[in-house]
Amino acid sequence: MKINLKSKIPVIISLREDSKKIKSKITSSNGKIKWEYENIKAISCELSSLSIDYITEYPEVSFICYDYKGNLCLKNAEKLIGLSYPKLFKLTGKGIGIGIVDTGVYPHPDLTIKRNAIIFFKDLINGIEKPYDDNGHGTFISGCIAASKYTSDIEGIAPDSNIVMIKAFDASGKGFLSDVIKAIDILISNSESLNIRIINLPFEFDINVNINPLEEIIKIALSKNITVVVPSGNSGPQSFSIYCPGNIDEVITVGGVEFGGNMKNIRVCSFSGRGPTFKKTVKPDIVMLASNVKSLASDITYIPGRTSNLLNAYTVKSGTSIASAIISGAIAVILEKTPDLTPKDIKSILSLSTIGIGEDKYSQGKGLFVFDKILK
C-alpha cells in the first residue's frame, strides 16, 4: 500500500467496540461508508492510503483488511449427464430455509410454478427488489437444491425447501468480501422468521490470514444454530488449495467427485481444492458429485417487470459449488426429520455417512456422502 496513492482503497475495519468516532473519522477523511453490520462490529468503506494509516492508530480499531474479490466455484462442462438422487426418505426438506449468497436467482418455472420456492430475495449489487440472475450461477445452485420437477424430470434433493437468496455477486461472477459479509449478516438477522437452518456459500476468496471478518461472521451464524456449507473450491489439484471459507475448521467443506460410469469408478475431480489448510487442518470434510451435472438455466438478460426469453431451460456444469449445494439439500432433508440437530451434530452425521473412494484424506476427506449410511 503506497501512502501517496491518491485513489481510494476498499477496506473492512473491524472494531473492538461500536464506535461513532471511527465513522466520523471515515466521513471527515472523505471516505465512503458502504456497509455497517448488525452481527459483527465492523464497517466496510473506501479510504485513501493515508487515511487508512491514520485510522490504524485508534484503539477502537481491532484490524483492517482489504475488501477482497471472490470467485464462484463453478465450471462449464461439455458432456450432459442427468442428476438423480435416491429418495430413501419420504422427506423433501419441507419448511427448511436455505440461505444462499450468490448471483441471484431467476424465477424459473421449476422454482415458481408448483410452488414459489424463493421466499426471500435481496440484491446488494443493483438494488432490484424482485428475483433475477444476470449470471446463472445462483439459479443453477438453487435448482440442485429445490427444483420441483415441473417441466422435466429434474428434481432438487430438497424440492420443498425454501430458497433465501442474497445477491452479492455481479453478472461476471465477482463479489466483494464486504458484500458477502453483509449478505450473511442479513441471513443471520432473518434466520428465525424464515427458519434459515443452512447457509450455502458457493465461492472462494484467496485469503490465508489468521483473522478475517468473513470467518468472524460465519462463526456467529454457527452459534445461532445455522449449519454453514461451503465448497473446497476449484483451485486443485495441488495441496493447500482450499481457501476461505473452505479453510474454516467449523464449516462443512465439500470437495467434488466425478463418476466414471459406475460406483466403482469414482475419483476426486482434478479441479477440486485439496488440503491441508495452512493451519494443518484436514479438509475437505466430505466429497459429493461435482462434474457434468444438469440443473436450471437462467435468462441472464431478464430484468423483473419485463418479458423473459428463456431459450434453454436447463444447462450442464461442473464445479465444487454443485457438491456444496447437494449437501445443503441433504442437510435440509435431515433437519426436516430431526430439527433439533446442531451444526456440530450435522457435521458428525455427514462424516459418518460416507464411503471411502481410495484417495487420501486431503482429497476426499471422510469420503463420499451416501444416504444409505444414515439409514443403517
Rank of each mutant, 00 (worst) to 15 (best):
I186D: 10
M1L: 12
N247C: 09
S363K: 02
N225C: 12
V101P: 02
D206N: 13
Y302R: 02
T27P: 00
A325D: 10
R267C: 10
T227F: 08
T253Y: 12
D53S: 10
C269A: 13
S193Q: 12
I166S: 06
A325Q: 03
D206H: 10
F140R: 06
E46Q: 15
D179E: 08
L177V: 04
K21V: 15
A221D: 09
K373Y: 04
V254M: 11
K344A: 03
T320K: 08
A313D: 14
F203N: 03
G255N: 03
N234E: 07
P343E: 01
V287G: 01
S321L: 01
G99R: 02
D185N: 09
L310A: 00
N312Q: 15
N212I: 05
I125T: 11
T307F: 11
I300P: 07
C65E: 15
G143Y: 09
G329F: 01
I217Y: 06
Y37P: 00
T151D: 15
A117F: 03
S178M: 00
P86T: 05
G136H: 05
S51T: 02
A147H: 03
I188D: 12
I207N: 02
S318E: 02
E38K: 15
G138L: 06
I199Q: 01
K87C: 05
D123N: 07
E38S: 13
I12V: 13
F278A: 13
L352I: 05
L368K: 00
N190W: 02
G136V: 06
V164L: 11
L375S: 11
P202Y: 11
I181T: 02
V282F: 12
Y85E: 05
G329P: 08
R16I: 13
P213M: 01
T56E: 13
I119T: 13
T27A: 02
F259Y: 10
V229A: 06
K149E: 15
S232Y: 00
E155W: 01
A171P: 01
K94A: 12
I9P: 04
F205K: 09
S291D: 11
P237T: 10
I326H: 01
P109T: 08
E60K: 11
S295N: 08
F63N: 05
S351Y: 04
I98N: 01
I181N: 09
L111Y: 05
T277D: 05
I118R: 00
S152F: 00
K219V: 06
K21W: 12
T281Y: 14
D102R: 04
G273A: 04
G358E: 10
A183Q: 04
I13C: 00
I349D: 08
S351Q: 10
D340Q: 09
D206E: 12
I157W: 01
G261F: 13
G319K: 03
A183T: 13
N4V: 08
